[in-house]
Amino acid sequence: MLRVLELRKSYPQRGIVLNGLSLELKESETIAVTGPSGSGKTTLLNLVGLLDRPDSGEILFREKLVNNYTVDEAADYRNRQIGFIFQDHLLLPYLTVMENILLPLSARQLEDDEYRVKVGYARELMERTGIMNLSSKYPWQVSGGEAQRAALVRALINKPSLLLADEPTGSLDAANAEILGNLLKEISSQYGTAVILATHSMTLAKKMSIIYKIENGKLVKI
């Protein structure tokens, strides 16, 4: 599904971060990417999600080159194919949990029927993740774990092919981290969503099918 070939990326202040990184990901496959701070885990996710552009290399999604997409094409790609979860849930504080979850649907025009279907799907996911009772609450009214679960549901609302999770449990306590980690694994296998998980936590990484480590700007399988 996803092929990343010889990605290179450097920053003026940081120098070379990715130095010819390559990766292949099959449909529904789940991988964890570990490494010390500054090794390039977030950079990789940002590049795959087209939030940033590589200096060189190729990113092929279903054999289509995506890293040369225009800004609008990249946005559409992120909306339809990618789901992002970040360490900080990044829920909008002025929208309720339900509105936050439905937010990705506002990025493009949807017919009323299609919208209703999505809402139904959202409810299903909310039930699945145990946050249905929080739909009318605001992010500052729920706990970190609950907010992160809402972020997970938001990331999945458009049934993306690929979920990019950047330290999703970084701000959570162990219990919530365990819940979220399990959810990730289950939902991925239930809905066939591939996952790239960037994490420090080996406990979480072990929930994925393959574990990589970034060393010297390249991926090394552990």
Binding site: G49, L51, V71, D72, A75, D76, Y77, R78, N79, R80, I82, F84, F86, D88, L90, L91, L92, P93, L103, P104, S106, A107, R108, R154, N158
Partner: peptide, 15 residues
């Protein structure tokens, strides 16, 4: 960070 969310969720620049 919120505007970053919009980007991440696939909102176009124009939007």
């Amino acid at each position: 960070s919120q505007i970053f969310s919009f980007f991440a969720l696939g909102f176009s620049n124009r939007k």
